[in-house]
């Protein structure tokens, strides 16, 4: 993956806009821009993780929302137990809750991924969707954690230097997390693991013939995608201080897939632009009409039928 000069310029410009967003929001008198920016960063983390699986490895998972929701519920449930005294207060520290929100989906993904990867192609899409749906029903039924109504979190996880009500500070945390994730993923993309994943996508049988067993590589990609989904979910629940089964809804999985494809499959940076495009499109269309999905649906169909390279590919100018 080598960025063209134009893409580098766009990346730097985008980063400058993101870094200056709170100042822009203050100047425009629109503090809601900051929340929107945090949302973009959070969805971009989940979408970038999914791109490793979908774009780089060629395994389209329709269940990314399960990890998103599991990460979110992990921090919310820890906070709820700390609130009623059944767990010590330090579990709500970000240093503990966020790694937990990464680890819980990762461990579950290790088992579920091993099962899902027994199938390929269309069965893989269906089985990942089915497992995500299983977790969705589980959280709907868990009355102890709010069930259908969801579970609110009284305050955000404690971070050093940043107060629980500091929205701008939290935005910079999300942005930093996104940048860190992207830099790590960029290394993964170019590492031996990333190259093998690329080979598996192009021709799995040939990888076998070379003498590589694809299974552990595919599982690693699956678990990495799930971990990043969990991190994004934890940040999302922190942002809105609320977790509900909607986090795991199958449309959420679908939207994450759309972000990846919209940005440009397998391009990593594209996932960020896809996430930004979809989050902003949501907000824009929702302001315009309550029935925004009737517009979004045809846009999706058109993107799939016509725009194959995605936003990132178009920026590349080739």
């Amino acid at each position: 993956m080598v960025e063209t000069p134009r893409q580098v310029v766009v990346l730097l410009a985008s980063f400058a806009v993101m870094a200056g967003l709170p100042a822009i929001a203050a100047a425009a008198g629109r503090p809601d821009f900051v929340t929107l920016g945090s949302q973009v960063c959070i969805m971009a983390i989940a979408a970038a993780g999914l791109d490793l699986l979908m774009g780089r490895t060629g395994l389209p998972s329709f269940g990314q929302a399960a990890w998103f929701g599991l990460g979110g519920y992990t921090v919310a449930i820890l906070a709820a137990h700390a609130g009623d005294g059944s767990l010590p207060g330090w579990v709500t520290g970000a240093w503990f809750a966020w790694p937990a929100a990464i680890l819980v989906p990762a461990v579950l993904a290790l088992g579920i991924g091993a099962l899902c990867l027994r199938t390929t192609g269309i069965s893989f899409i269906m089985i990942t969707l089915a497992f995500a749906q299983m977790f969705f029903f589980l959280f709907v039924a868990l009355k102890a954690y709010g069930g259908d109504d969801g579970l609110s979190m009284r305050r955000r996880n404690a971070l050093p230097f940043i107060g629980p009500r500091d929205d701008v500070g939290f935005y910079y945390v999300c942005l930093a997390a996104l940048v860190l994730v992207l830099l790590v993923l960029r290394r993964v993309w170019r590492s031996r693991l990333g190259v093998v994943l690329d080979g598996i996508r192009q021709n799995e049988r040939r990888m076998l013939a070379i003498g590589l067993n694809p299974f552990p590589y595919k599982l690693a990609a699956f678990v990495l995608a799930a971990s990043l989904g969990g991190l994004a979910g934890a940040l999302h629940v922190n942002l809105f201080r609320f977790a509900s089964p909607d986090l795991l809804h199958w449309t959420q999985s679908g939207e994450l897939m759309v972000m990846v494809v919209l940005g440009g499959l397998g391009s990593l940076w594209g996932a960020v632009f896809g996430a930004a495009a979809l989050v902003l499109l949501h907000v824009f269309l929702a302001q315009w009409t309550e029935h925004w999905m009737i517009v979004l649906g045809p846009i999706l169909v058109a993107v799939v039928l016509l725009a194959r390279r995605g936003v990132w590919g178009a920026l590349g100018g080739r």
Partner: peptide, 8 residues
Amino acid sequence: LATFGVIL
């Protein structure tokens, strides 16, 4: 993805 758009 296209049929997902149709569902929406």
